[in-house]
Design a protein around this nucleic acid. Structure first.
Lengths: 246, 246
DNA sequence: TAAAATGTACGAACTAGTGCGTATGTCAAG
DNA sequence: CTTGACATACGCACTAGTTCGTACATTTTA
């Protein structure tokens, strides 16, 4: 089987998951402009929705095939709009990829910020943070894959986007505060570097998702099983806590 | 800057690291066949060396650009031989990629097998194993990258290679033995799953290398610094040990 | 001389990107 | 309220360039 044949097989598989026909009735649901939209074969300009649609499809394409492997034509085909529109809104394949990447980062930032941990006792606060990280990576495999892809490209696109670079610093501050409180209260014996701790947590949660396929293949283990997930979640939490207490 | 321009820039950069002219004197060094090779513009058939050369170049190409991003023509150009030979020996781009992958796995298997840990006390044995894993990933970033790439492709190529699937099982047996001895001797309080422990160790060591660029970019930290490496090596060992002791 | 190894040049298919014309919404003037 | 002007949104069909793979000729080895 050639690479191209594999790809076609893949595409067919994906298509079979979603009905191909998009009901026109969906269009009438949206209530952007108050007036009833005239329906009969008329086009309704809706730039925001068009862009979102493109980004959705592009995210799946890039996370499944990588940046170089992702095809603009394939994206265009699965979009409600045309290839011309991709270039109209995003300028280039790379521009589209960058938009996908930025949107993925923007999405997780919002989730991570509203987490009130300062009034919890340090050990419990850390456990909540670890659970959140674990479940986030588990719930957003496409984000994990985009980061993997970025690393293959030496984070070249991330470097050019200030938006992304400035993120994630809040996590470190959160961890630093918890560690300080823990040491002050005498529950943590070790004064650890917050970035190191973040890495210890992140590495495990990330790896479970990013290396799911190779790990699963070699050790014949399904990492998405409920029981396995819960055991792993407990393990990384216990490991971090016991490390800090030693 | 377009994707293609970026790539060309990249290639130029890489080329500048190695002198382009390959001295013919190098050829006389090798002592494969005992007889003195006739030198004057004469060709010496050396299929093994030709294949190794192709694999070396292909490994760099694929680890730098991914499978879809890697260019057969680019590989051919940097090889002492021609594109024709790539297809002569490996049949297709995919065949070449698979050969690269299998060679990378074969290389690490040999390193992991001769590690005598059974006569060391359990805790020390585990520390040696963790050090070895850590240093292996650190020393073989191209292996780490190939595994990352395989995961993006859902481990599709690995699945088709029995050679690879059968590997890595020995590590689990080694860990299982250490854990058993530790529990028996009373130094480990917890009866942990050896595959889970392998994952805990592997995740951290792997992540440090695979996510070097994004992590380094976001937290402005150079993970290849000597001091950082040593601290991290100690951290993962302490974390695993303290986890088992709790 | 036969078989293995190698080089050159080429082609078919694919792929990112675009030229150009059309549709839609808005806003101001009549 | 209607009309027309203009910017934004959109689609078809095409191009220029790339990329994997191969046909064919040639050289080396045995």
């Amino acid at each position: 089987m050639t690479l191209e044949q594999m790809r076609k097989f893949d595409v067919d598989n994906r298509l079979s998951k979603r009905p191909v026909s998009v009901s026109m009735a969906d269009e009438t649901v949206k209530a952007d402009s108050g007036m009833a939209a005239k329906r009969e074969n008329g086009r309704k300009n809706d730039p925001q929705r068009t862009q979102e649609d493109i980004l959705d499809v592009a995210t799946e394409e890039f996370t499944t095939h990588g940046l170089a492997g992702g095809r603009v034509d394939a994206i265009a085909e699965k979009t409600r709009t045309s290839k011309r529109m991709i270039y109209y809104y995003f300028g280039s394949k790379e521009g589209l990829y960058l938009a996908v990447l930025e949107r993925a980062y923007r999405k997780i930032r919002t989730l991570e910020e509203d987490l009130q941990l300062s009034n919890l006792p340090p050990e419990q606060a850390l456990r909540v943070l670890i659970s959140t990280t674990f479940e986030h990576d588990e719930a957003n495999p496409e984000f994990v894959r985009l980061v993997s892809i970025e690393n293959i490209h030496h984070a070249a696109h991330m470097l050019r986007s200030e938006a992304i670079r400035d993120l994630n610093v809040s996590v470190i501050e959160t961890i630093a505060a918890i560690l300080d409180r823990g040491v002050a209260a005498g529950v943590f014996a070790r004064k650890a570097d917050p970035i190191d701790i973040h890495m210890l947590i992140s590495a495990f949660c990330f790896f479970r998702v990013s290396n799911r396929y190779t790990f699963g293949t070699i050790f014949r283990r399904d990492l998405s099983e409920r029981a396995t997930m819960e055991r792993h979640k407990g393990m990384i939490a216990d490991a971090v806590i016991s490390y800090l207490k030693t």
